[in-house]
């Protein structure tokens, strides 16, 4: 590639700036909704999964079995198939099947059980004795959840959230291609269908940058919260 070609490529990227900015916002929206759903629904689900395990506070074999099976069921769907299967539901919920908000529906669906498992696993790391100590002091189940489980697990929960965010940044690119928009969609439309390789390269570099930032922020926060 000679200097002129490089110049043209950069020129092209420059003219695409508004589209790139739009794509970043769409990706942010998809990710934001998905993560919100993961935390709001997947978080409590993970806590219930943990607490209903044999030997835990609310050991309940049936509940644990059913929830575990449901989580596994949703997680077994390849994301692209989950998206297609949820089209009718998306239409009901959002009124449309295209755009970042519509794409956020299957994203949320996939993120909820994913985060639930991560939360369950993180809470399992907390020594049983600490929970027992709280029980011996007369702590209620709600106090044990808020003051012991979430507080002792906070660093691990942030790390889990970091993993989830990065995974779903990549899922959001898939969702984007089938009508959601976003960075991945832009890369495919310009970089692949229109042979503007520089757009593809730029979008991949942008994603690399975003992933690095998410990981660094996640690591820093987790380290700061960890007093072990």
């Amino acid at each position: 590639m000679d200097a002129l070609a490089v110049h043209d490529a950069l020129q092209n990227l420059l003219t695409l700036t508004p589209e790139i900015w739009q794509a970043v916002k769409e990706t942010g929206l998809m990710l934001g909704i998905g993560l919100f759903a993961a935390i709001a629904i997947g978080g409590p689900l993970g806590i219930v999964l943990y607490l209903s395990q044999p030997g835990q506070l609310f050991a309940h074999r049936l509940l644990n079995g059913v929830l575990g099976w449901l989580v596994n069921l949703v997680r077994s769907f390849p994301f692209i198939i989950l998206m297609v299967s949820l089209v009718p539901l998306t239409r009901i919920l959002v009124g449309s099947t295209i755009g970042p908000v519509a794409a956020a529906v299957p994203l949320s669906f996939a993120a909820i059980p994913y985060f639930a498992r991560l939360v369950e696993q993180t809470l399992r790391e907390i020594p049983r004795g600490v929970i027992e100590a709280a029980e011996s002091m007369g702590a209620s189940p709600m106090q044990i959840i808020c003051k012991v489980l979430l507080n002792e697990g906070r660093s691990g929960l942030i790390s889990s959230l970091t993993i989830l965010t990065i995974s779903f940044l990549s899922y959001s690119a898939v969702a984007g291609v089938v009508g959601g928009g976003g960075i991945g969609d832009l890369a495919i439309r310009y970089g692949y269908y229109r042979y503007e390789t520089e757009v593809m390269v730029a979008m991949v570099l942008l994603l690399v940058l975003i992933v690095q930032i998410i990981q660094i922020v996640g690591n820093r926060l987790a380290a700061r919260l960890d007093k072990r």
Partner: peptide
Amino acid sequence: ELRRARQNIGMVFQQFNLLTNR
């Protein structure tokens, strides 16, 4: 009632069982 009664019984553990993030 048991939770209230337990507030009248302190416990000390071999492995301390302190909350590490507090």
